[in-house]
Structures are given as structure tokens and as C-alpha cells.
Write a protein that binds this DNA or RNA. Structure first.
Length: 421
RNA sequence: GCCCCCAUCGACUAGCGGUCCAGGUCGCGGCCCUUUCAAGGCUGAAGCACGGGUUCGAAUCCCGUUGGGGGCACCA
């Protein structure tokens, strides 16, 4: 039988990174096995539904590169089918009415067990499982009733979900056997915690996929990083692109223990992917990010400055802070200019009629100037950097000056020389 | 309280009875390179939670303890 899996987020907000993680495992498994990956929206709780959520969830999934098969389905559309089945269960004595609601009769003896792909055999004594409301008094089916039924109706072969669903599993297993259907294989993948070992929440900063996108992480970084949270192909490999991930993914190697989300390692990995990009592609991603985040900077200039920062930033969001001086005026800090007046004046003179005005010539001229003033490169270039870029940290000085052009450079040099006194 | 899950360096993990005085990656320390910041090179510190078993032999298997997490809704 062909593999068919699904993720079933509820439309209560943006796609959470934990949901993205289980979506990834589902997707990797499905694609690796040549099966189907489906998207189902569990919207039976209309009171908590957020209107834009359904679109946002799909946007995030697409951004991550997780494509799904078939149309998006909605749990609410199957309410009637659920209700009919519930009534049938009542007629068969497997469920009963209770204050207007319908409750499922769980077995009182024995155990309910399954062989979990990542955890092995899990057994729960039936006496510890309470009779479950399957249809509310207002007629809407509950999650623990609708979800397993939909898995059956959709022909889901493997239910891959977060381990917070482990305690739901015996309930759902009993419901499935009550309707005499085959049970799918279950795989409960580990949850993701914040760096303090607690469930990932607002307190930890970014938690929705969109947050990471806005923070300037690449989708390929997110995919690689998330895949490694709870799974590893071996003990050596860290950087794996989409194709390699797909080729090597193995559900049975997913770890049962929860993983902490380490933002520092994420930053490192994003830097790796950023540096790996061909220069034109890097510039393209930069432009996309700038556009999505309200920057209206000239594409041509962005493209020309991009190579100067590609090796220096870990997130696209660092670009404005790092290369902003190419796009607007600077305000050098007085203290950072202190004592730099002689070099500033000498640089002004050296660059005023320099030809050609390119990085190589600029470097030669400035080094020569520094020599004549008896300054070490470090002492000589820092005031110039501050004057020209407005910051003590910048892309390569000489390349920056070339791109900035003679006119802007000289005027910034002069303004700073005046300020330095 | 009851039920369930988890347990290797600070973090992510490799390890599935001997090849491990435990390997890789991030982070951290040191050195080198260097116009700043990065990047890069070399290098160092750092771990099998504890206690019992089983076995000739245990990080690996079993039991218990401790610690962490999740669930116990007419939420999903």
C-alpha cells in the first residue's frame, strides 16, 4: 500500500515552528517513500478560528518548500458524516447520550497498545481511559472523534505527529476499532523546546515560521535545521540540502527524546547557506527580503553592495544595519573619530584626484598615507571607516569607498574631519 | 493526584554488548591570519543522571530512584 500522511493544524494562528517540524517529518517521509502528503485543517472549534490563519499556514508551508498533494480539506466539512457515525455507535451500544452530548464507551478491562515507529510498543490500561465526548451537545464532533475518522476516510497510512498526542492515541485507536476500520501506523516525533528546556513560547522570541522568515533566515536553513532536531542520518553530517534530506530520511531513526531549539546554531547554519549562495542569488534573496520588510532601496545598488556583505552576515536582516550607509546619510560618533583628524585630512587629499578610483588604488593610496603619517593600518583606517560608513564595523573599507564614489566619500571625510576637530 | 513519554559534552546528536580511557557539529577558550566585523586554519576544555542487577564484558539489556516533559476539556 502506498504511503499517505498528513498534517492537521488548527487555524488558530501562524504556523508554529513545532508544527512545521512535524510537517517536515511527514513530508520527508512521504516524499522519500514516493507517497502522498496532505494538508487538513482541523477547524471544528470555530470559536478559536482566526480568519487569515488558513492562508498563512499555506504560505509558510510553501515558503519552507513543503508541497502537499490534493486539495486542502477541512474537518468541519465532515461534521455530518461524524454525527451519523456517532448515532450509529449509539445504536450499537458503543456510545451513549450524556446531557445532550454523545460519549464513547471505552473498554474497562485489558490494555490498548500500539507499536510506535519511534517509541516502540506503548501500552495503556483501559481502566485509565475515560469515556470520551465525541459529539458536543451543540452537535459538533470533537477532535478526538473527528481526527481518527478522517484519517480512516482519507486512507492515511501513517500518523506522524508530536508526542503531545501520545495520550490521545489509545482513545483514537478504540474509536477506529469501534467502526471496524484498519488502524494506521503511528509515529510520535519529539517536541521542540526553547533553550531553557521549556515548551517553545512567545518568551523565546521567534516561534512562528513567519517570524524566522522576517528575521532573515533562509528556508533551506530552516529545513536543514529542523530536520536535525530529532533526526540524524549519521553522526557526522550536518549540512544537507533538500535532495540529500529526501534521499537519506528514515523515520525509524527519529529520536524519541525532545530537542531544544538553539538559535545560535541556527544563526551559524544560516550563515553557511548565505555564503554558499551564488552572488546573484544572494542579491536576489536580499532584494526579496528587503521588499517583504518595507525597504524601498534601489535594486541596482543593493545588487552591487551585496557581495561586500555576503560573507559577513548571518541573517538577511543584518543587511540594513551593515550596509545602510550606502543608502543614506551617516552620523559618525564623535568619540570614534577622536584623534583621527590628521589621517582624515590626509585621506581627503590622497583620494581627491586619485585615478582610477577603485579598491586596489584606494588601498594603495591609503596605506601609503598611513605610512607617511607613521600610523599602523589599524589606527589609520578606523577613523576613515567611521567617517565613511558611520560605524566601527563595516564591509571592506576600500571596496566600500569605491562603491560609494569619490564625491560622497570626500564629503563624508570632510564632515568628519571638521567634527573630529 | 492519576496516566504516559523522555534521559550521552552547555546545545543538537553518533553509538543499537567488546572496534569507546565515547566520535561529529554549534557554542565556549587559546593561537594564527587580518583595515573593523565576519569568514578561514590550528588547537583546548567539556558528557554516558544515580543505584542495583544480567553478562567473561554495558553508554548500549532489565529493574528501581531521581530529574525533565506531555496528557487527564462538550480545545485541537
Amino acid at each position: 500500500m502506498a504511503v499517505r500522511v498528513r498534517i492537521a493544524p488548527s487555524p488558530t494562528g501562524l504556523l508554529h515552528i513545532g508544527t512545521a517540524s512535524t510537517a517536515l517529518f511527514n513530508w520527508l517521509f512521504a516524499r522519500h517513500e514516493g507517497g502522498e502528503f496532505r494538508l487538513r485543517i482541523e477547524n471544528t472549534d470555530t470559536s478559536r478560528e482566526v480568519a487569515e490563519a488558513v492562508d498563512q499556514i499555506q504560505d509558510s508551508l510553501r515558503w519552507l518548500g513543503l508541497d502537499w498533494d490534493g486539495p486542502v480539506t477541512f474537518q468541519l466539512d465532515r461534521m455530518d458524516d461524524c454525527r451519523r457515525l456517532a448515532e450509529q455507535l449509539v445504536a450499537e451500544g458503543k456510545a451513549y447520550e450524556d446531557e445532550g452530548a454523545i460519549r464513547f464507551r471505552m473498554p474497562d478491562e485489558g490494555v490498548t497498545a500500539w507499536d510506535d515507529v519511534v517509541r516502540g510498543r506503548v501500552e495503556v490500561r483501559n481502566e485509565t481511559i475515560e469515556d470520551l465526548v465525541i459529539v458536543r451537545s451543540d452537535g459538533r464532533p470533537t477532535y478526538n472523534f473527528a481526527s481518527p475518522l478522517e484519517d480512516v476516510w482519507d486512507g492515511i497510512t501513517h500518523v506522524i505527529r508530536g508526542d503531545d498526542h501520545i495520550s490521545n492515541t489509545p482513545k483514537q485507536l478504540n474509536i477506529i476499532s469501534a467502526v471496524a476500520a484498519d488502524v494506521p501506523v503511528y509515529a510520535h516525533v519529539p517536541m521542540i523546546f526553547g533553550m531553557d528546556g521549556k515548551k517553545l513560547s512567545k518568551r523565546h522570541g521567534a516561534q512562528a515560521v513567519e517570524d524566522f522568515r522576517a528575521a532573515g533566515y533562509l528556508p533551506e536553513t530552516m529545513m536543514n535545521f529542523l530536520a536535525l532536531l530529532g533526526w540524524a542520518p549519521d553522526g557526522e553530517t550536518t549540512i544537507m540540502n533538500r535532495e540529500e534530506l529526501l534521499r537519506r530520511f528514515d523515520l525509524t531513526r527519529v529520536s524519541p527524546s525532545p530537542a531544544q531549539f538553539d538559535y545560535r546554531k541556527l544563526d551559524w547554519m544560516n550563515g553557511v547557506y548565505l555564503r554558499e549562495l551564488p552572488p546573484e542569488e544572494f542579491a536576489h534573496r536580499l532584494l526579496l527580503w528587503l521588499g517583504e520588510n518595507g525597504y524601498d532601496w534601489p535594486a541596482e545598488l543593493v545588487t552591487r553592495t551585496a557581495p561586500l556583505v555576503q560573507e559577513k552576515i548571518a541573517k538577511l536582516s543584518e543587511f540594513p544595519g551593515f550596509a545602510g550607509f550606502f543608502f543614506g546619510d551617516v552620523e559618525p560618533g564623535q568619540a570614534d573619530l577622536d584623534g583621527g583628524a590628521p589621517m582624515l585630512a590626509a585621506a581627503d587629499e590622497a583620494l581627491a584626484s586619485l585615478e582610477p578610483f577603485d579598491a586596489t588604488a584606494i588601498e594603495a593610496a591609503l596605506r601609503d598615507t598611513a605610512d607617511r603619517l607613521g600610523l599602523k593600518p589599524r589606527q589609520a583606517f578606523q577613523p576613515i571607516r567611521v567617517a565613511v560608513t558611520g560605524s566601527r564595523v563595516s564591509p571592506g573599507l576600500f571596496e566600500s569607498i569605491e562603491l560609494l564614489g569619490r564625491e560622497t566619500t570626500l564629503s563624508r571625510l570632510r564632515a568628519a574631519a571638521g567634527a573630529a576637530g
